[in-house]
Design a protein around this nucleic acid. Structure first.
Lengths: 357, 357
DNA sequence: AATTAGCACTCTCGGGTGTTAAGTGCTAAT
DNA sequence: ATTAGCACTTAACACCCGAGAGTGCTAATT
């Protein structure tokens, strides 16, 4: 699969994997002597040292200083994630917690994501992130007008993405029922399924023409429609368990921590990364693999949740490069699949999206 | 106003104020020698030392260790805020930034709060917080039913707080228009302006009775109404500029920082404090004045934004006890007033709340 | 030819020590 | 009542030293 796979002997792979496992678990540089305690490695420390020196030369390991053990480099982690890592088996407790959330069928996606974030953070002990995707400008398929009282009416818009938006519109001058019916008809004739940025003067004039006598209503209505169509939910990123990062020695340094918090606060950047990501597979960014300079010492793992063809959210984890990738990946994948299933179940009940905001 | 005001000679007050001003500005314990450089104080360091010793005995100052200068105690800060502090004058740059936000009439309250938070944080250099209040279970004043297609209809609910909620309801069995009209009428007769927790069996049976032939529709509708009424927007707290706290030496200690982040993550606690606060004046909590143990070393300043009689949000600042109270108070008050004004302007345009989510 | 034992070397970490600077409290003089 | 002067306390910093961990290299062993 990878060129590197042929570059390394089985023995080197074993040593590399053992080192990375140990470093992920303990967080301290791993020395040759420690490796001799591993049952699967029956070599003297000297031989291991030679192998480690070669692995370092090849770029899989680095040394914090000459008299310390080795720690994985980014290339090392990458190879580990791609080829070496063992599958994590969720414990029964963990499974129970995860299933609990999925089966508990909380109807609103927002709260599902909130609980999911909290759960992922507590299970993995890293910071979790949940994303609600941005919804771009949207086309409106159909209009309904509902007179509420003598002062105004409710404009109901059904969008192309099968959601409903409503706006209350205050009537500047009394408009009789006939006017509202004509307005509704005119909107449905002229303003359906078009890109709001292409509304031109001729169209506007046509609209005005159809509504002679009620044209004072047109401009507030148009404003509302325009707003509703462009209400781009710019995407929402929520984090949970930020303070968990503090327990890892790599963030005991104030500078590292500071740059980390800065990243977490630049939510647009993270949203950008998520929006540009693979929508079907799990995404793993290790250290500098992400373009953000301040994320040099952190890794990001996430997966989007899809319902049918469209993305409804994403769940992931942010933590140190020394992350328990195996556990994180398993947890995130299990949960995203579960939530996707839960949503598609729900959609069987109702074709249109039930409950929106 | 305060008993303490009589306890202190003018000279003590001058010394105390000068110490607190200096400590807020510099963050380092203030010694007697430094105070002699102040033009308004024409005393020798020895005299000042005596006064400082007395102020310490009275509880306004403390000493980190015997050979350090003095720092204000919580009592000291409290007295400073209540009686000693000078008014801060916003600079023209600051005024411009603040006015810019207020005059820029962004229509959605959400984005206004978001920008306001960012602005407050950047102007004061502390962490800002913005709160959208929780909306409790709500009574529904009126129902409208709108048939969208043969599969289902839209249930529109106008609430007592003048907002509109809609739910799409899937029809299990085909229901003709007459059924929907009768459903709407029955809901408006029986289910208006009542507390959802008091819906009793007799009421349910009455409802069923009015809808003979269509009763299969009743239970999903009831479920939706119940959900809509109890969709308690549990309040939303957003923070901005968390990383700014790192620049203050009081948070250079990992433990302090950790407990701080923990507090920031327990948003419910902060929401609680805000919801129980004074709705008209600015609220200032210094250190332990707040019940949360982990906030021992932080202060919280905030003010709610009201439109007419109801609270639409709150803006504030979290920072070290050594906070530039004067600047923070002025900034927060100016901005909350500005936003309140901006909202009430808007409400002149439309009686009902225009644009909700 | 591959592996291993042995050893000199390097580097960090923690503890101990001495010095410096800041600031105090007290006493006696003004 | 105020102040000068002085002895005292303490944190902070720099410095040194030894212990411990781990390495790379060489020579011996399998």
């Amino acid at each position: 699969m990878h060129k590197e796979a042929y570059e390394l002997s089985e023995r080197k792979k074993l040593i590399l994997r053992t080192i990375i496992d140990a470093y992920i678990a303990g967080g301290e540089p791993v020395g040759s002597k420690f490796l001799t305690t591993n049952k699967r490695i029956t070599l003297s420390s000297a031989t291991i040292r030679n192998e480690m020196a070669e692995l370092e030369e090849m770029g899989y390991l680095t040394q914090p200083h000459t008299s310390a053990g080795r720690i994985p480099s980014e290339k090392g982690y990458r190879f580990y994630v791609d080829s070496l890592m063992r599958n994590y088996r969720l414990s029964s407790d963990e499974l129970r917690a995860l299933n609990n959330l999925v089966q508990n069928k909380i109807s609103e996606l927002d709260s599902v994501l909130e609980y999911a974030g909290r759960l992922v953070s507590s299970l993995t002990n890293y910071t979790s992130l949940t994303v609600k995707p941005r919804t771009d400008a949207v086309k409106i398929l159909r209009y309904k007008i509902l007179k509420l009282n003598s002062d105004g009416f409710l404009l109901i818009m059904i969008t192309a993405t099968q959601t409903v938006k409503t706006k209350y519109i205050h009537m500047t001058s009394a408009t009789d029922d006939d006017g509202l019916i004509r307005l509704e008809r005119a909107l449905n004739e002229l303003m359906c399924d078009i890109d709001m940025n292409t509304v031109t003067m001729p169209l506007m004039m046509q609209l005005q023409a159809q509504l002679v006598g009620y044209d004072s209503q047109v401009s507030p209505v148009m404003r509302c429609i325009y707003e509703a169509a462009n209400e781009s939910d710019s995407g929402d990123l929520k984090l949970d368990g930020v303070n968990r990062l503090l327990q890892y020695p790599e963030f005991n340094n104030i500078d590292t921590l500071s740059s980390m918090l800065e990243v977490l606060e630049r939510k647009e950047d993270i949203l950008d990364v998520v929006s540009k990501s693979d929508k079907r597979l799990i995404n793993i960014y290790i250290g500098n693999e992400i373009e953000l300079a301040a994320m040099r010492h952190t890794s990001l793992v996430f997966k989007t949740i899809s319902s049918g063809s469209h993305v409804v959210g994403a769940i992931g984890v942010i933590g140190p490069c020394r992350m328990d990738y195996s556990k994180v990946i398993t947890t995130v994948e299990y949960l995203t699949l579960g939530i996707a299933g839960m949503i598609s179940d729900e959609e069987e009940d109702s074709d249109i999206y039930d409950g929106y905001e």
